[in-house]
């Protein structure tokens, strides 16, 4: 059911995009050249599997965070009220508030797990955005257009995962090193993890996945039954954050 609905929405979105792009090109007097979509091949649904145990074995490792922050020019703002985060650590019991584990050892409940945008199948942020500055791509990525965002922060109110950050001020002064291959953001727009769509487009895996020394983050195509993601999910029990809200998160946590 959810897959057929996704297919339908995807098709509707594609045709709308095709129409929109055609009119832009016509206006410019261009002939539309045949273009090969780089990653959104039919039957692709990007997803991630997190193995918290492997991650914990690495102790205070923050390699994935650092790789992501550099790749996307994520600022390091000291005031926690204004922080911008794409992938970060949260205590297990806060990331999974509905999984009551009263008798689990205290140490376990407070163990950090990696959290990021869940790239939901039925994303509330996409539903509420008044300008389609955030939308669902047909490969499952919840994408953002920072040129179009008006900074109303409705998506932040709608996201049940706290995955979205707002640029309360100009982020540039808070960047130690600037990656010239990726833009920064301007003040007044919302941002979040994009599953490294810019890297997927050139056939690379997300920066956090490549940076993890323990292979605790596995990225792949959920629609490929023989793929690594599906094999992992077949082999081990996995949970998703607040899946009971009907959002259909695409980040799985192995138990």
């Amino acid at each position: 059911m959810s897959i057929s609905r996704r297919g339908f929405l995807g098709a509707a979105g594609l045709s709308a995009l095709a129409l929109a792009s055609k009119s832009t090109l016509d206006a410019l007097g261009f002939e539309a050249a045949p273009q090969e979509p780089t990653s959104a091949a039919a039957g692709t649904r990007w997803a991630m599997v997190v193995d918290p145990r492997k991650c914990l074995d690495q102790g205070d490792c923050t390699k994935c965070i650092e790789a992501c922050d550099y790749a996307h020019n994520v600022p390091h703002i000291t005031n926690p009220a204004h922080e911008v985060k794409w992938i970060w650590k949260e205590p297990f019991e806060d990331a999974f508030p509905f999984l009551e584990v009263d008798y689990a050892p205290e140490a376990f409940r407070e163990q950090p797990v990696m959290v990021l945008c869940n790239h939901c199948d039925n994303a509330p942020c996409v539903r509420v955005c008044p300008t389609q500055a955030t939308w669902k791509r047909d490969d499952g990525i919840v994408m953002m257009d920072w040129h179009r965002c008006i900074g109303c922060r409705y998506c932040m109110a709608a996201c049940p995962y706290g995955s979205r950050s707002f640029n309360w001020g100009d982020p540039r002064p808070a960047m130690a090193s600037l990656n010239p291959d990726y833009p920064t953001r301007t003040k007044g727009v919302v941002e979040k993890c994009t599953f490294c769509e810019e890297r997927l487009a050139v056939g690379q895996r997300p920066a956090c996945v490549d940076a993890c020394p323990a292979r605790a983050l596995v990225f792949g195509n959920l629609d490929d039954p023989e793929g690594e993601v599906r094999s992992l999910l077949r082999a081990r029990f996995a949970v998703r954050r607040k899946a009971e809200l009907g959002t259909g998160p695409a980040v799985y946590y192995l138990v």
């Binding site: 929109a20 792009s21 939308w135």
Partner: peptide, 8 residues
């Protein structure tokens, strides 16, 4: 528009 919104 093509890069951001259509992934072309």
């Amino acid at each position: 528009e093509r890069v951001v919104r259509e992934n072309i």
